[in-house]
Design a protein around this nucleic acid. Sequence first.
DNA 1: AAAAGCATCCGCCAGG
DNA 2: CGCCTGGCGGATGCTT
Length: 340
Amino acid sequence: VTVQERRVVVLVRPGVQALDVTGPVEVFDTVNRLLAERAVRYRIECVSADAPLVRTSSGMVVYAGPLADAAGPIDTLLVTGSWDGAERPGDASLADWVRQAAGRSRRIAAVSAGSLLLAEAGLLDGRRATTHWAVCDAMARRYPRVSVDPEPIFVRDGPYLTSAGVCAGIDLELALVEADHGTAFALDAARFLVVFVKRNGGQSQFSAVLDAQLADRAPLRETQEWILDNLERPLAVPELARRANLSTRHFSRVFREEVGATPARYVERMRIARARGLLEVTGLPMGEVARRCGFTTVETFLRSFGRVLGVSPGEYRSRFQGCAEDAGAAHRALPERSLV
DNA sequence: AAAAGCATCCGCCAGG
DNA sequence: CGCCTGGCGGATGCTT
């Protein structure tokens, strides 16, 4: 049997979060092991302008080859994010290298702040993309030709895939695996990885947002908590404003400033968060899940879920359910009042 | 599946 | 004056 190798080149930059590198690499490595009997393997190569040793944000060191090692055709080019690079304009010569390497890659993926380097290279002009929520605004401002969408956990536009954060990066790799080997296999790999994913903060994208989203002003925070306690109710914006004793206009304005999301968006996110929890730890029918989270119909639930997370509820459930030994992580992701 | 209907959001202006 | 607040109307995007 001839084994076909798919070459995955991972660009590592100093200051990267180690998980941005190890997460995706582990996904491909896991797939290799699960695919032992199959005809396709991933060959993973880490390269860096700072080879051979690259210091990550935590101080852990990654061993990488020089950029020159990545010559020749590439199957998947994976650009990891550096927080240092996210703060100032990208390195021009590195952007040049990325543009050139992208030219001989079948597809190009970026994890969290790695999107900014793709944007710097001009590869995302006129395309949709996402990045880590903390640098979304900066990215949109600096690269106005890129349509930055902070909502989905990952975005695919042509050969370019960008993801929102570490965990979302893993989801993104799974999407690549799905494209290569089919949905059923991707789900197998996901199930295999689930414990790993969750132990490393599988829901961190969400809880980080939650943490960041607690308002300073007491009346607003109370409204937020009330929302969490009453997710199954309609929760229209004017009603929320009335509860906070503010005019609708003023409520929306202050809420957006304090919380970082518009009221309706916030409610939607909280509903999805609860739905995720229910999908992970219960076998409730979709209609019931929808109802308990305040969605009037299953269709609204389905659309909203897909819009925010990029997967259907059913698919999400099959990925994450049955990981009972880590039910605690799922529970932690629930926006229960005790959390706040 | 498309179109009408609805909620939300935001720029704008006005009053305190 | 600068700041906070409230209401209006249109654009957008989602629901039915």
